[in-house]
C-alpha cells in the first residue's frame, strides 16, 4: 500500500507551495491539500481494521461509480433538491413577510413572539408522526418537514433584522415623506436585507440537513432514502458513505449558490469587514 504515502507527501507539497500565494489560490489549494490528506489517512486507518467496519476509499469510489452509471445518484439528487426547493421557498414565502410584520409592529411582536419562540425548539424530527398523519407517506410530508425546519430561522432572522434597523433610517424616510407601503419597500426591506440573506443561508443549510432525515422515513427516493436503503438491503456501506459524500458536496454547492446573494450592491454594506 504505497499510494496513501505518496498522497500525504503530495498534500505536504501543496501546503508548502501555497505559502505566499494570493487569497484566491490559497482558498483552493489549502482545502485540496487537506482533502487529499484525509483520504490518505482514511485509507491507512482501514489497514488496521481487523474486520471491515468502514469501507475503504476505493470501495467508496466504486460505490459512487455504480450510482453514477445507473443514474441513481442523479435521480436521487434531483428528488432531494426538489423537496428542499419546495420546502425552502414556501418557508421564505411565509417567513419573510411574517418576520417583517412581527419585527415592525410592536403589538404583533408582543402577541406572536412567545408563540414563535415556543414552536422553534421543537425539532422537525418530532413532527414526523404528525406530518405523516396529515400528508401521508410521500413528498408532501417531507416538504412539510423541510418547510418547518427552514421557516423558523427565516422568521426569527427577519424579525431581528427589522428590529435592529437604525432609527436614523426610519426617521430620514419619514422626514422626506416616505410612509406606509413605500416605507416598507424603500427602507424596511432593504435595511433588513443583509440579515435576511444571512437567515436564508442558515435556513437552507438546515433544510438540507433535514431533507435527509425526512427521506429516511417518509419517501422512497432521495439521498436520505439511499443511505437507509443501502444499509437495510445488503449492508452496502460503500453506498452509505457515497451518499454521505454526495450530501456534503451538494451542501457546499447550495451554500456557495446562496452566498452569491451577498454580493449585490444593495446588500454589500451589511457585510462590511468580511
Amino acid at each position: 500500500m504505497t499510494w496513501p504515502w505518496i498522497a500525504i507527501a503530495l498534500a505536504l507539497v501543496i501546503w508548502r507551495a501555497s505559502r505566499g500565494l494570493g487569497a484566491r489560490a490559497q482558498s483552493v489549494l489549502l482545502p485540496t491539500a487537506v482533502g487529499v490528506l484525509i483520504i490518505a489517512v482514511w485509507r491507512l486507518l482501514c489497514l488496521v481494521q481487523n474486520e471491515p467496519i468502514f469501507p475503504t476509499p476505493e470501495e467508496t469510489y466504486g460505490g459512487i461509480r455504480e450510482l453514477v452509471v445507473d443514474n441513481t445518484l442523479r435521480d436521487y439528487v434531483i428528488a432531494s433538491l426538489f423537496r428542499v426547493t419546495w420546502g425552502f421557498f414556501l418557508a421564505a414565502l411565509v417567513g419573510i413577510p411574517l418576520g417583517l410584520v412581527v419585527g415592525w409592529s410592536l403589538r404583533a411582536y408582543r402577541a406572536l413572539n412567545p408563540i414563535i419562540q415556543g414552536l422553534r425548539p421543537i425539532s422537525p424530527i418530532a413532527w414526523i408522526p404528525i406530518s405523516i398523519l396529515w400528508f401521508g407517506v410521500g413528498d408532501r410530508a417531507a416538504i412539510y418537514l423541510i418547510f418547518l425546519a427552514a421557516f423558523f430561522p427565516i422568521v426569527v432572522g427577519t424579525m431581528a433584522a427589522v428590529r435592529n434597523i437604525s432609527l436614523v433610517y426610519v426617521r430620514s424616510a419619514r422626514n422626506f415623506g416616505v410612509e406606509g407601503v413605500e416605507l416598507f419597500r424603500r427602507v424596511v426591506l432593504p435595511a433588513a436585507m443583509p440579515q435576511i440573506i444571512t437567515s436564508l443561508r442558515i435556513a437552507l443549510g438546515v433544510a438540507w440537513l433535514v431533507v435527509v432525515a425526512a427521506e429516511m422515513i417518509a419517501v422512497d427516493s432521495g439521498l436520505g432514502y439511499l443511505i437507509n436503503d443501502a444499509r437495510n438491503m445488503g449492508r452496502r456501506y460503500d453506498l452509505v458513505v457515497a451518499g454521505m459524500l454526495a450530501i456534503g458536496a451538494i451542501g457546499i454547492l447550495l451554500d456557495l449558490l446562496i452566498r452569491r446573494l451577498e454580493r449585490f450592491d444593495e446588500v454589500r454594506w451589511g457585510y462590511a469587514g468580511r
Partner: peptide, 16 residues
C-alpha cells in the same frame, strides 16, 4: 418635508 434633517450619524441609505 418642508423642514429636513441632516443627521448626526449618517442618515443616507447604504443600500441605495
Amino acid at each position: 418635508k418642508r423642514r429636513v434633517f441632516v443627521f448626526q450619524e449618517y442618515g443616507i441609505f447604504p443600500w441605495a
